[in-house]
Amino acid sequence: MLELRLVQGSLLKKVLESIKDLVNDANFDCSSTGFSLQAMDSSHVALVSLLLRSEGFEHYRCDRNLSMGMNLGNMSKMLKCAGNDDIITIKADDGGDTVTFMFESPTQDKIADFEMKLMDIDSEHLGIPDAEYHSIVRMPSSEFQRICKDLSTIGDTVVISVTKEGVKFSTAGDIGTANIVLRQNTTVDKPEDAIVIEMNEPVSLSFALRYMNSFTKATPLSDTVTISLSSELPVVVEYKVAEMGYIRYYLAPKIEE
C-alpha cells in the first residue's frame, strides 16, 4: 500500500506542468527514498529525472517498492482539478491498476477523490554516471527562461559558452544572429538574483532551443536554475523542488558532422 500526503500540493501540480510536454507516459517509482521518475522524450534526446524525497511529505507510507505507469497528460488533467492551496494525497494498492489523487481544501470543507487508470510502460532506467562538470552556472530561473524564449525567436540552436568573461548564449537564424552575455554578479540584494559562474575549464556546446524552452516550464518551481556543462556530455539543467528534491533535465548536445 502506498499513501503519500503532500501539504504543499501546488508543488506536484507544478512538477506535472514541468514534464508533461516533454514526456507522454512514464513510470513513477515509489520507495523508502521518495517518489521519483526517470524518463526520456520520445526522440531520446532529453531525459528528465525527478526526485521528491520522502521527508518532504507530511505522511509517507510505501510498504514495498512500487512502479506506477501513468499518462502524464491525464495525470495533469486530474491535478489541475486540485486547488493551489489543496493538500494532495496519492494513494495506491500494491498490484492495483489505479491510483487515487485526493484533494483536501485547507479548511477541510471540500474533499475530492480522482481515480486514474494506471498503464504498463516498458522503460529501463539509464545509468547516469557521476561527472565533474567543466563549468556550472547558477542564475535566476526567470532570466534563463527569458533568454531561451528570446533566442528561439531568432534561431533553433543555442551555443552556450563559458569563459572567464562570463556565460554567453548565442544563436543564428535566417534573419540574423544574437548574443547574450551574463557576467558573474553576486552583489545583489537577494541571493536568488545572483549570477554565479564556476568555471573549472572553458566550455562551449550547442543545444536545441526547443528542448531548453520545454525545460523552462519548471520555472515556477524555483527562483534559481543551475546549468552544468562539460564538453562531450549532456547539459544538466536543474531546478530545486522546494526543500524536498529536484527536477533535472539532461539534454544531449548537437555536434558538427
Binding site: S43, V45, A46, E124, I128, S206, Y250
Partner: peptide
C-alpha cells in the same frame, strides 16, 4: 551541418 546526438549515446542501459 550539426547533428543532434541521442541521450542514449551518453547514458547506458543497465
Amino acid at each position: 551541418m550539426q547533428r543532434q546526438r541521442s541521450i542514449l549515446s551518453f547514458f547506458q542501459k543497465p
